[in-house]
Nucleic acid binder design. Structure first.
Lengths: 220, 220
DNA sequence: CGAATGTCTCCGATATATCGACGACACACG
DNA sequence: CGTGTGTCGTCGATATATCGGAGACATTCG
């Protein structure tokens, strides 16, 4: 089954629990060329309990972390995109984010090693261009894509479908609430700010009350 | 005066308006080694109207963009930090974010050029370490810091003070609202989701009503 | 056939670097 | 002295790269 934080698990396993900080909490800073091992900027870390951002980052990044695809998806996606046109690594990440409606942006940690492997297999080659490197399929790569059409899929579609509709909609609304709160904080009087604080506290309470009233599931 | 998006302007100029997309909107993609000039992931861009993140990124990043410090602050901050101990570029950015309570994280676009200039002036030197480069003051740099103590300030304190209290507090609450909404979206029934949608819509409406009732300022 | 173990891929964080836009500051001119 | 112009520093976005943790998948063993 999918990890606790993947939306695939959300989709297939409604029992999945959000408790705890997810991967970021357990993730240790590494040695080697990265030397620092201090506490991370996550919740509870350092002077700022909300993370790197004093306002806590966005709430969905807290949940929507970790694996969003399956093994082989990044490789398949790269082959699919490069069979359309040459692209650099950054463009590949951007395009996948765009085509998945934003639910999946492969990290550099998967894209660059996958590109390296594809080069090792002589399916892809890189050319210097404008200060960066543009990747394109080789002749061998084109033949491979033709012969393995079923492997060169569009995993961004699955990612998009898996994310569903409710989460984006509610988080979009929550985002608008945050925008309005920021405007009050900026342009409002102290009395306005106090009023806004109460509105937000009431909304939070109402949402948790919805969760609390959850009875054993019927017809799910 | 400060730019439309700096919190300094927020602080000193309450008339400042949030309308429009800020710097990101006008910022053009550049040529040269970065070739792509397509529409950005910002509001209104591409398939996903909320930005790179399908859920719109966090609301405060929309407002809290652009300049947060004055000319020379990054240089002063680097000198102050390196007079304590050697650090690499990434650690400098992290430390400033931490000490400012998160309101200021200088971008690589200011830190690395400033480090280069400080090296050119023989105030700082770099040493390879663990795959990266650690920067430290030279003898000349140490003398400079001693002679110009008034220039080597703690701009993170000013940044922190300028951000004030209301914005972080309200955005922290909005963040918690977002977290609760995400939990409902994930674990709730369709009826729960509909109920949560209403809670969020009501909260947004209440916040804008607070702003709408603003009379001409008294005693501000 | 199910459980345990091993392996492989994905990801977040770390780390670096630069360009062009833009805001703020200094300076010059009327 | 105020306004306009020029210059300089800051920033977001672009672009690359890698390490170690962890999840998912395959394989092996009982």
């Amino acid at each position: 089954m999918f990890g606790p934080w993947s939306f695939r698990r959300f989709h297939h396993d409604p029992e999945a629990c959000f408790a705890g900080g997810g991967r970021g909490r357990h993730h240790r800073h590494r040695g080697g060329h990265h030397g620092h091992g201090g506490d991370g900027p996550g919740p509870g870390g350092g002077d700022n309990p909300w993370g790197g951002n004093p306002f806590g980052g966005n709430p969905w990044s807290f949940f929507f972390r970790g694996r969003k695809t399956r093994r082989g998806d990044v490789r398949a996606a790269i082959l699919a995109l490069l069979s359309e046109q040459p692209r650099n690594g950054y463009q590949i990440m951007q395009e996948l984010e765009q085509r998945s409606g934003g639910v999946w942006r492969p990290s550099p940690g998967s894209v660059y090693p996958a590109l390296q492997l594809l080069q090792d297999e002589d399916l892809v080659k890189a050319e210097e261009s404008g200060g960066g490197r543009v990747f394109q399929l080789t002749e061998h790569g084109r033949a491979y894509v033709k012969e393995h059409a079923e492997d060169v899929s569009a995993p961004w579609e699955a990612a998009r479908a898996a994310a569903g509709e409710d989460l984006p909609e509610l988080l979009g609304l929550a985002h608008q609430v945050g925008v309005a709160a920021a405007q009050v904080a900026h342009a409002g009087t102290p009395a306005h700010v106090a009023e806004a604080r109460k509105v937000l506290q009431d909304a939070r309470r109402a949402l948790y009350r919805i969760l609390a009233e959850d009875a054993p599931e019927h017809g799910r």
